[in-house]
Design a binder for these strands. Structure first.
Length: 350
DNA sequence: AAGGCGGGGTT
DNA sequence: AACCCAGCCTT
């Protein structure tokens, strides 16, 4: 009879192969009694939602340098936090990040709750993040189920049910494997295993600490798991944005509404975006508009976008119908979400 | 239960 | 150009 997967085997592997990351307290440090800072664990886990480690690194370092504590972040201006988050995507995370920081700073004396249920109540914290913060920051035996863990469980137990229907079953397997000894290291170990050895495409089964008990390795189906229900094709939407430069170098921008696409972010004023023809709309300021050749292309979660860019140079004394001028010294393209930054890049090269 | 919500990487 | 990855919230 084949052995069951064993958390001790995984932890032994993790002790030698843990990835080094700016927010992580490694196994040796933890064994020496060094506890992680819950603020840094929480911030990193919010940033890591749907986002790779490589993309998060620089953002994490900038955020923690500028706002070293949850109270410092709670006192920040909304616009500063949104600008610092620009380019990382899923901007509701940044709005919820601030909401959460203010609850923790103002109602919890700057201390994050340690248990899963209380963490789950906070804005932007769902089942995954509640488990991750509870396990990693407070060494509680919470079960952590992210995409890596789903993949590892699907392979270990050869689950062929497609996601997301398989989620409860995979969570159940993950729960039964979670140890009470070193739960924080274990949570990071399963995710590291999924990110390195048990990777989506070419799993390195030959060097996997769980190769013996892995049912999918047994049956040769590892690389085909987990199954996923097919996704819908993305339609193409079209729109116009207006890049107005005042003669002193200031640019005309608008603050997008908090709800919806790119919510709370700066952007160029423009038309709505839709399939087919560009809908009727009004220009943000009276000027002689010229249309640039070419389009800025960007793909969102559920559609492709093609933006036509119109530009104008406007005199000092003219006031906009929409938006506000941002002084030359205060404007930075890196404050814009990527779609808007691409539009600016096209304008810059014209 | 289903769909909205980014961006980067790989093929 | 098409495909892959993937957690929280709202509806």
């Amino acid at each position: 009879m084949r052995d069951q997967p064993n958390s001790v085997d995984l932890l032994e592997w993790y002790d030698h192969h843990a990835r080094v990351m700016p927010w992580r307290v490694g196994p040796a440090e933890r064994a020496a009694g060094i506890a992680p800072d819950p603020y840094r664990v929480w911030l990193s886990e919010i940033m890591l939602q749907q986002t790779t480690v490589a993309a998060v690194k620089d953002y994490f370092l900038r955020f923690t340098t500028r706002w070293p504590t949850v109270s410092a972040l709670a006192d920040a201006e909304d616009a500063d936090v949104m600008a610092e988050w620009a380019g990382l995507g899923y901007y509701a995370r940044a709005r919820n990040l601030l909401k959460c920081a203010r609850v923790v700073a103002n109602e919890m004396q700057g201390k994050f709750p340690a248990n899963y249920e209380d963490l789950l109540k906070l804005p932007g914290i769902g089942p995954y993040t509640a488990g991750a913060v509870s396990a990693i920051a407070f060494d509680r035996p919470s079960t952590v189920v992210d995409g890596n863990v789903e993949r590892v469980m699907a392979r270990l137990f050869d689950v062929h049910t497609p996601l997301p229907a398989a989620k409860p079953e995979l969570t159940d397997f993950a729960t039964r494997l979670t140890p009470t000894d070193r739960p924080g290291d274990y949570a990071q170990a399963v995710m590291d295993l999924g990110a390195t050895i048990c990777s989506p495409r070419n799993p390195a089964c030959g060097i996997c600490p769980w190769r013996e008990p892995c049912k999918a390795r047994d049956s040769g189906t590892a690389a085909d798991l987990p199954k996923k229900t097919p996704k819908k094709p993305k339609p193409v939407r079209h729109g116009v944005v207006y890049v107005a430069k005042r003669v002193d170098g200031a640019f005309l921008l608008e603050r997008r509404p908090d709800s919806g696409l790119l919510g709370g972010m700066l952007g160029w004023p423009g038309s709505p975006w839709q399939e087919g023809e560009i809908p009727p709309h009004s220009r943000p300021i009276r000027a002689e508009w010229k249309t640039l050749s070419g389009e800025a292309r960007h793909t969102f979660t559920h559609f492709h976008l093609r933006l036509t860019i119109k530009t104008a140079l406007v005199p000092m004394d003219r006031s906009p119908d929409t938006g506000f001028f941002v002084e030359k010294t205060a404007f930075s393209p890196s404050d814009l979400p990527t779609a808007m930054r691409k539009a600016f890049d096209l304008y810059s090269k014209s």
